[in-house]
Amino acid sequence: MSAEDLKKEPLNVIIAGVGGQGNVLMSFLIGNALVRRGYVVTVFDNYGASQRLGAVASHIKISKEGLQNSPLLHEGDADVIVGIEPIELLRNLSQFGNPEVIAVANLRPVYPIGVISGEVEYPELDEASAAIRRLSAQAWIINATDEALALGNPIYTNVILMGALIGSGVLPLDVMAMEEVLKEQLPKAFEINKVALHRGVDLVKAG
């Protein structure tokens, strides 16, 4: 399939979260869907040394053609940032955001060790929401973890968010493209993930 023109070249996406939340799977699925549609994709999952609970940011650059891009986004150059965790979203917005950036947020905190021990405070969730709106041109703030729990398991959180991202219309991908790649990559859990994907799309369409 040949790729269509993009709104911007390259189109830059960040998925921000915490180790163990499924960043890597999400960027992998989106990247694969884009390659199937003929795009040139560069994906870097920035997660440092920790297996779990460290900050993770997946940088995705999409081009219509040409060569692989450099791995990380340039500061202030994101077109859309998805946050599986609110303060990781804010961290990436403040570094890679700009007045035109679009945000897709899951409002479910994972507390860092300093917060757990009571050394530092975690921002209030209303404040976090307000800051997300302040630092984006448009923001979809959903509670994907609760939606996932309603489907029976928090692991569906990222597929719901992926649906929300597709629903936001920023990527050159439709629901069909994501379904194809889900079917290919997660054949055993396809049906439930399809439900999660559509749930995400609907949440954005509704909000």
Partner: peptide, 21 residues
């Protein structure tokens, strides 16, 4: 925008390395 972003960044707790639960 940058000023607002910096103000937000300052309120965010860091996420240092830790052993898993």
């Amino acid at each position: 925008y940058r000023r607002a972003a910096q103000a937000v960044a300052q309120t965010l707790p860091a996420r240092p390395l830790t052993f898993c639960p």
